[in-house]
């Protein structure tokens, strides 16, 4: 009982200390713009649906960001996983793509911004669908191609790398066993390569999601962006509303950590076999 109470309190000590230091510093400094009071930020976080300086509410901006990340990320996963599996399995496909892909790997997602702006400008899903007014337009116009592209680049490499790694490390006896048991090439892919490399793929997806979420803030600072948590932070900064900046940063942290936790749960629940098995 005592040990349990202790193990629950230990993780809370560091945040509590931080809060105390914050309170003391805020009182000492006494300047809203440099460091607002903790209660001000807490108040913002406690009322996430309130409209803030006419940029929409905290929640609505977080949701817009989430939709963007999920779209860019989903596209990245849909390309990287199948590509990673065939690259991991067929040596010649690996040779074909690997040098080319490695050329782009060291480029930070942000370095793509100028090129991406030149390519896509402020065009969005709304542009493709051909909408110019209405509620639907507002939704779709939030999904800029430039943003999707940057999020895509951020998530693509970690997912690809760990998928290739996962497939390459499959014990060949498993593949041979499936062959002898009569599996077709397609069944080898679906029933051996994918499940066997899934733990590694999930790890890559977890890292990719973290990076995608980080790329998002930069993507939301691109011209033409009028919503999203990154936009909200930069805009609040220009208005010297540091409390909103901090509330926005905390939201980013909380959402990112929650998404990570979902993946960790999956890793833990579904892939306990990997810890013991070869």
């Amino acid at each position: 009982m005592k040990a349990r109470a202790l193990s629950l309190t230990i993780p809370l000590i560091a945040p509590a200390l931080l809060a105390v230091i914050w309170v003391i510093l805020a009182r000492q400094i006494g300047n809203q713009v440099i460091l607002p009071g903790i209660e001000q930020v807490a108040d913002l976080l406690g009322h996430p649906t309130e409209d803030l300086i006419s940029m929409g509410s905290l929640i609505s901006n977080v949701l817009v960001s989430l939709v963007r990340v999920i779209m860019g990320y989903a596209i990245a996963a849909l390309v990287a996983i199948p590509l990673g599996i065939v690259m991991g399995y067929y040596g010649f496909i690996f040779k074909f793509f690997n040098g080319f892909l490695n050329l782009f790997r060291p480029i930070p997602p942000l370095a793509w911004v100028p090129l991406v702006m030149a390519w896509f400008g402020i065009s969005s899903l709304a542009t493709v669908v051909g909408l110019e007014t209405g509620q639907m337009y507002i939704y779709l116009n939030n999904i800029k191609f430039s943003m999707l592209f940057i999020i895509f680049i951020g998530a693509f490499y970690p997912i690809l790398t760990s998928t290739i790694h996962g497939v390459r490390n499959i014990n060949t006896t498993l593949i041979d066993s499936a062959r002898v048991l009569g599996a077709s090439e397609y069944q080898i892919f679906m029933k051996v390569l994918i499940p066997a490399s899934m733990p590694s793929i999930i790890t890559g997806m977890r890292i990719g999601l973290g990076i995608a979420w980080m790329c998002l803030v930069s993507a939301e600072m691109l011209p033409g962006s009028l919503s999203g948590i990154g936009y909200m932070i930069t805009h609040a900064f220009t208005l010297a509303s540091t409390d909103i900046v901090i509330a926005g940063m905390i939201s980013i942290g909380v959402v990112g950590a929650s998404m990570d936790m979902v993946f960790r749960r999956i890793e833990h629940k579904k892939f306990s076999w990997r810890r013991q098995a070869r």
């Binding site: 006896t173 041979d176 066993s177 062959r179 002898v180 048991l181 009569g182 076999w273």
Partner: peptide, 18 residues
């Protein structure tokens, strides 16, 4: 190529762990 009429049992690590 492998056919259903000839089975093969390996020394170890041949079961699908998942």
């Amino acid at each position: 190529k492998p056919c259903g009429e000839i089975g093969l049992v390996f020394q170890e690590y041949s079961l699908f762990p998942w």
